[in-house]
Simulated assay, not measured.
Amino acid sequence: MAGLRAKHKADRHARILNAAVTLFRRDGYRAARIEDLAGMAEVSPGTVYNYYGSKGDILIATVALEVEEVLSAGAAIVADPPKGVQQAVSTLINGYYDHSLDYLSKEMWRSAMALSIEAPHTQNGARYSELDGALAAQVVALITRLQQRGEVAAGLDVQSLGEVIFNNLNAMFIEFIKDDAMTLDTLKARVACQTGALAKLIEGRP
């Protein structure tokens, strides 16, 4: 019976999040109503609130869904990166970017970031920071792996390098979600140029 209850609970979670993705994209996060979301998920509004305390909780849960999937895909890249710093870093970053709009629209990302900035000490703010930290740690892990393979100069601080690379890809992603007209291809091309310049420096190439 416990296993069946867990299965039903997971199914309700999935239905609520799937409905949230559809509704937030269709109506916009701020305009979407919990009552409409509940109807779409075929649960009661009370059930939605039993699982998520607020609409913001649901939005951050969709962010977590996206980030957990890219972290899983990124782990395989870190384990066996392509040859060359620029290629390896670009492969990881592009994986993040390519997945970024699967669940969230640009408007949803802006709302999620606003939640994390407006209330950094709340559960939502802390969860968003935790997800960012996990992505940053994965970039650091990649740079560490490349240094172990001799592709990053031995004397360089991989922790700081990874944080710099993550901070840049994050800042560029913010520019992307601020501009509804900017395409993913434009974003990736701009970051590739920046990554290429940095790769030359950390590989010690002229």
Results as ranks from 00 to 15, higher is better:
Lys178Leu: 12
Gly150Ala: 08
Phe166Ile: 03
Met172Asp: 08
Glu130Pro: 04
Glu163Tyr: 04
Ala137Asn: 12
Gln148Met: 13
Thr183Asp: 05
Gly150Asp: 07
Asp180Thr: 11
Ala134Gln: 14
Leu142Met: 07
Met172Ile: 05
Leu184Met: 10
Leu131Thr: 07
Glu163Lys: 11
Asn168His: 11
Glu118Phe: 09
Gln123Lys: 13
Glu175Trp: 03
Leu146Asp: 01
Tyr128Glu: 03
Ala153His: 09
Thr122Arg: 00
Met182Asn: 10
Leu169Gly: 01
Val139Asn: 01
Arg149Ser: 10
Ile174Tyr: 07
Gly155Ile: 05
Gly125Leu: 02
Ile165Met: 12
Ala171Asn: 07
Leu169Phe: 10
Asp185His: 10
Glu151Trp: 12
Arg127Ile: 07
Thr144Glu: 15
Gly155Phe: 05
Glu151Val: 13
Thr122Trp: 00
Glu151His: 11
Leu131Tyr: 09
Asn170Val: 03
Phe176Asn: 00
Ile177Thr: 04
Thr183Cys: 06
Ile143Cys: 14
Asp157Gly: 08
Met182Gly: 08
Thr183Tyr: 03
Thr186His: 12
Ala154Tyr: 04
Ala171His: 08
Gly155Ala: 05
Asp180Cys: 10
Gln147Ile: 08
Asp185Pro: 03
Arg149Pro: 05
Leu156Lys: 07
Met172Glu: 11
Glu163Arg: 10
Thr144Tyr: 05
Ala119Ser: 12
Ala136Ser: 14
Asn167Glu: 05
Gln147Lys: 15
Pro120Ile: 08
Ala153Phe: 06
Ser116Trp: 00
Asp180Pro: 11
Ala136Asn: 08
Val139Gln: 06
Tyr128Pro: 00
Phe166Asp: 00
Ile177Tyr: 07
Ser129Lys: 14
Ile174His: 04
Gly155Arg: 05
Asn168Leu: 14
Ser129Arg: 14
Arg149Glu: 11
Gly150Phe: 04
Gly125Tyr: 02
Leu135Thr: 12
Gly133Pro: 05
Thr186Arg: 13
Ala119Tyr: 03
Ala153Gln: 15
Ala153Val: 12
Ile165His: 03
Leu156Met: 15
Glu118Ala: 15
Phe173Met: 10
Thr144Ser: 13
Ala141Val: 12
Asn170Asp: 11
Pro120Asn: 13
Met182Trp: 08
Ala136Arg: 13
Asn124Ile: 02
Gly162Gln: 02
Asn167His: 09
Asn167Ile: 00
Gly125Pro: 00
His121Met: 15
Glu175Gln: 08
Ala154Asp: 11
Ala181Pro: 02
Glu118Asp: 14
Ala136Phe: 00
Ile143Arg: 07
Arg127Glu: 15
Ala119Trp: 00
Pro120Met: 11
Glu130Ala: 13
Asn170Arg: 06
Tyr128Asp: 01
Ala141Thr: 10
Gly125Thr: 02
Ala154His: 12
Ser116Ala: 15
Tyr128Thr: 04
Arg149Trp: 06
Gly162Asp: 02
Asn167Val: 02
Asn124Lys: 02
Pro120Asp: 10
Leu169Asp: 04
Ile143His: 06
Ser129Gln: 13
